[in-house]
Amino acid sequence: MNRTLPQSILLYTTLVVVICILLFPVYWMVITSLAPSNALRSFPPQFWPQNPQWQTYTNLIFNTDMPRWLMNSALVAVVATGISMLVSVLAAYSLSRYTMKGGEAVGLFILMSKMLPATMLIIPLFGIFRNLGLMGSLWSLIIAHATAIVPFATWMLKGYFDSIPQELEQAAQVDGCTPWGALFRVILPVSAPGLAATALYGFVLSWADYLYARTFLANAAGNWTANVGIATFKGEYQTDWNVIMAASLLAALPIMIAYLFLQRYLVGGLTAGAGK
């Protein structure tokens, strides 16, 4: 690219300014979490912590329920993603490779289900879980999250499978595999990056949930997820913003790390099934 010096300066300046503005909340979250309590009530605010207070974090980890909530979030996300992946992989493969009567209808319904408002779906789910005695249990959350992950994962994986030439499993079958064997010995290993990206995305979906968690777990504080915990912190620790921000950062961290890995695959996931 041949750009003149003034053009380069303009470009980089714009970039830096835009990124600074857009990422300021993230910066502010980090800075606040390290600030001493008294600095939070200073006007003008401190934009750089004079002496970072790491004990905010150690306190949070050793003296609050935060670690437990993080564990719950992780547990729910892993199990919900695992179960969803299990059925989604098979369904996606079937939708990608077989032309069946009714197969298209199932695929279409899965796609349309993305339009269901969660605030509506939660009403019957609430009744069902109450009847099954699942209220307050992490299973209620796992099932609820599967309602979102299964449709999305099925479409995302179908996209990956569609991009793998069918000749690959045909070759495997000629080589002596059963269709089942061709799926497990050839197609799944080949689509490993896609599987990983889909699973990671499912994890993100589950981790980010607040609606289901606050509704189903409201009376079971021990089973709270990180998001419910943080929303409650907001009410309880009114002014201890350093604690709240530290907790927030801990809750955001897994997703930010996932994001680094997911970047390349993000578009496929974001648009899963939205194309044609």
């Binding site: 030439p165 000749e167 690959l168 045909q170 000629v174 002596g176 050839v186």
Partner: peptide
């Protein structure tokens, strides 16, 4: 089944694993 016919096939796109 294809695997039981004792045949081999070469594909246009080679279909190498």
């Amino acid at each position: 089944a294809p695997g039981k016919r004792d045949i081999a096939m070469v594909f246009q796109n080679y279909a190498l694993y």
